[in-house]
Design a protein around this nucleic acid. Structure first.
Length: 481
RNA sequence: GGCGGGGUAGCCAAGUGGUAAGGUCGCGGUCUGCAAAACCGCUAUUCGCGGGUUCGAUUCCCGCCCCCGCCUCCA
C-alpha cells in the first residue's frame, strides 16, 4: 500500500515518492516558532502533526532529515526586546528555551537542526540570495532602502494558495502607505534599518537592515537541505503569503522546483475560533499542565484528530484523552503480567479478527491507516479494536504468554509512532502501601466499614485501590494528574 | 468578493456506490462484600438542507444554508 499525502499545491491526494526513490533519506523542512513569547498549544498542534508525519515515515523505513527554523528577529521580537529593555538575543533566548521544554513535554522528536535566523551564516546566505534575485530582475531596491520581491516577475506566484493576484483584496490588516513598492503584493526581502530597530541591524550591500521573514526560510532550507526538498510543512495560515514567497524566492534563485509535497495543518480552535495570541484565546503547555494534565495527555488530545480537520480544544476533550490513555495503560499492564508468567490454564489460541497470538501477527491496520494521509482516527480505531479483542481473550484466560509478548511487540512498534506510553512505573509511597495492607486486613476480617474508610483515605491521597485476584493493586488516580 | 477546510449519535471522530469504525459519556448486565478494571448488551432506520443520476447515495452530480480559516503579523 503506497503512502499518500494531500498536497496543498495540487489539492489532491498524491502518492509519496521522494526525490530519490532509491535512497531512503528524505528531506523535510518545518516552519518553527517566532520566539517573541511562549508558543501556544495551537502552534504545537502543527509540530505534533509534523512529528507524527516524521515518525510514520520512519516506521516505513525512511530516514528523515528534518530542519525546523527558529525566527528570532522580526517586528514582534524587536518590539518585545525594546519593551523589556534587554538585547534581542537575551529576549528571545528565554522563549527558545521554553519552546524546547514544551517540545520535550509533548514528546515531539527533536529535529536534526534548528537554524536561527540571526545566525551570521544564514544572514550571509540571505544577502547572497537577495543579490542573486536582484541580478535576475526578481527583486529591486526601493527608495526606503528596503529590497522587495517583484511578484509580477514570477508567473507562478499565487499558485500554491490558488490566488489570482489581480484580485488580491486587502483585509485592512496591511498598511497601504507603502508607496515604495511597485506592486502592493511585493514583499520585503531586506528591511532597511529604522530607528525603532535600535541596535538590531546587519550590514548589507543595500545598507544596514535586517532580513524579511520569508527569505530566512528559503535561505536556511536550501543551505541545509539543498535546492530541492521532499516535504515542507506548516499551518494553513502559512500558505499565503509565507510559503508562496518561499517558492518564489527559492525557485527564483535556483531555477528548480523547490518542494515536492506541501502539507498544511488545520488550526486548533477554542470555542469554535482559531486559537491565536492576537485574540487572547490561547493556552500554553504550562497552562494545561497547571490544570493537572500531563504532557502525554495533551499530546494525545492534539494528535487524535486528522491534521487537515480543525480541532476544537476543550477540557472535556482533555478528559477523553485521559480516559482513553487509561484504557491503553490497563491493557499494557495486563499483557505484561501475562507475558511475565505463564498463568494460562487453557492456552487455546484464539482466532478472532484482531486478537493476536504468537503464530498469527496482528494485521497491519494501524500503519496502513497512517499511510493514507495520516489517518490517525482510523489507526486509533484499529488500536482500540485490538485492545478490546485481546482484553476479551485475557478475560477468557485464552491468551498465552507468547501471544501476550507478541501483542507487546506490536505495541512497541506502533508506539514508535504514537509515543504515548505512560512514564515508568510510579513508586507507591510506603504510607499508601501500609493503608492498602490495613485495608486488606480489614477485608479479610470482613470489616467492610473500615475497609471502605481506608479506601476513601487512599482516594483522598490521590490513589486508587483495586481488588484483583492477585491482591490489592494501587494506582495513581487519573484525575490527580 | 476570491480561495480553501468542515457540517456523521450528548460530545469527539473514521468511513464506503450496497446499507454507519473507534473513543468518551449515560443506562442495564457479568465479575466484586461493595467498588474499580475488564467484558457483554443498549444508545444515529440515519450521515446540514433540497433536487438529480442509480436497482440502490452518507458516499457521485447540481443548487442552497451554516461554521471556521486565508486574502501580505500568524502553526
Amino acid at each position: 500500500m503506497p503512502i499518500r499525502f494531500f498536497n496543498t499545491y495540487s489539492r489532491e491526494l498524491e502518492e509519496f515518492e521522494p526525490r530519490d526513490p532509491a535512497a531512503r533519506p528524505i528531506f523535510m523542512y518545518t516552519c518553527g516558532p517566532t520566539v517573541y513569547s511562549r508558543a501556544h498549544i495551537g502552534n504545537f498542534r502543527a509540530y505534533i502533526f509534523e512529528d507524527l508525519l516524521q515518525r510514520q515515515l520512519e516506521l516505513r523505513g525512511y530516514n528523515v532529515h528534518r530542519v525546523m527554523n527558529i525566527t528570532d528577529v522580526d517586528d514582534k521580537t524587536i518590539r518585545g526586546a525594546r519593551e523589556s529593555g534587554v538585547p534581542l538575543q537575551k529576549f528571545t533566548e528565554q522563549f527558545k528555551q521554553a519552546f524546547f521544554e514544551d517540545t520535550d513535554t509533548l514528546r515531539i522528536k527533536r529535529a536534526n537542526e534548528y537554524p536561527a535566523a540571526t545566525d551570521q551564516r544564514y544572514i550571509d546566505r540571505m544577502i547572497e540570495m537577495i543579490a542573486t534575485l536582484i541580478s535576475k530582475g526578481f527583486a529591486y531596491l526601493a527608495d526606503d532602502k528596503s529590497v522587495y520581491f517583484r511578484i509580477n516577475k514570477f508567473p507562478d506566484y499565487g499558485k500554491l494558495a490558488h490566488f489570482d493576484l489581480t484580485q488580491l483584496q486587502s483585509t485592512g490588516r496591511v498598511k497601504h502607505d507603502e508607496y515604495d513598492k511597485e506592486h502592493i503584493g511585493d514583499f520585503a526581502l531586506w528591511k532597511g534599518w529604522d530607528e525603532e530597530d535600535g541596535a538590531v541591524k546587519w550590514d548589507s550591500p543595500w545598507g544596514p537592515g535586517r532580513p524579511g521573514w520569508h527569505i530566512e526560510c528559503s535561505a536556511m532550507a536550501t543551505a541545509l537541505l539543498g535546492d530541492q526538498i521532499d516535504i515542507h510543512c506548516g499551518g494553513v495560515d502559512n500558505i499565503f503569503p509565507h510559503h508562496e514567497a518561499e517558492i518564489a524566492q527559492s525557485e527564483g534563485v535556483t531555477g528548480k522546483k523547490f518542494v515536492r509535497y506541501w502539507l498544511h495543518c488545520a488550526h486548533l480552535l477554542v470555542d469554535g475560533q482559531k486559537m491565536a495570541k492576537s485574540l487572547g484565546n490561547f493556552y500554553t503547555v504550562p497552562n494545561v499542565l497547571a490544570k493537572g494534565y500531563t504532557g502525554r495527555e495533551l499530546r494525545y488530545a492534539l494528535l487524535r484528530v486528522h491534521y487537515r480537520v480543525p480541532l476544537n480544544f476543550t477540557w472535556e476533550g482533555m478528559n477523553e484523552a485521559r480516559e482513553s490513555l487509561g484504557r491503553v495503560d490497563e491493557w499494557l499492564g495486563r499483557l505484561r503480567q501475562i507475558a511475565e508468567k505463564e498463568n494460562v490454564q487453557h492456552p487455546t489460541l484464539i482466532n478472532r479478527e484482531q486478537a493476536p497470538n504468537a503464530r498469527q501477527p496482528i494485521k497491519p491496520g494501524f500503519e496502513n491507516a497512517l499511510d493514507d494521509d495520516l489517518n490517525i482516527s482510523g489507526a486509533l480505531g484499529f488500536l482500540f479494536e485490538t485492545i478490546r479483542e485481546t482484553n476479551r481473550a485475557m478475560d477468557e484466560n485464552k491468551l498465552d504468554a507468547a501471544s501476550a509478548s507478541a501483542c507487546l511487540d506490536w505495541w512497541k512498534r506502533i508506539n514508535t509512532v504514537l509515543d504515548l506510553e505512560a512514564e515508568v512505573e510510579i513508586i507507591v509511597p510506603p504510607e499508601l502501601e501500609q493503608l492498602a495492607k490495613d485495608r486488606e486486613k480489614a477485608r479479610r476480617e470482613k470489616n467492610w466499614k473500615r475497609s471502605d474508610d481506608l479506601r476513601e483515605q487512599i482516594f483522598a491521597l490521590g490513589w486508587e485501590v483495586r481488588d484483583t485476584k492477585d491482591g490489592p493493586k494501587l494506582t495513581r488516580r487519573a484525575s490527580s494528574g
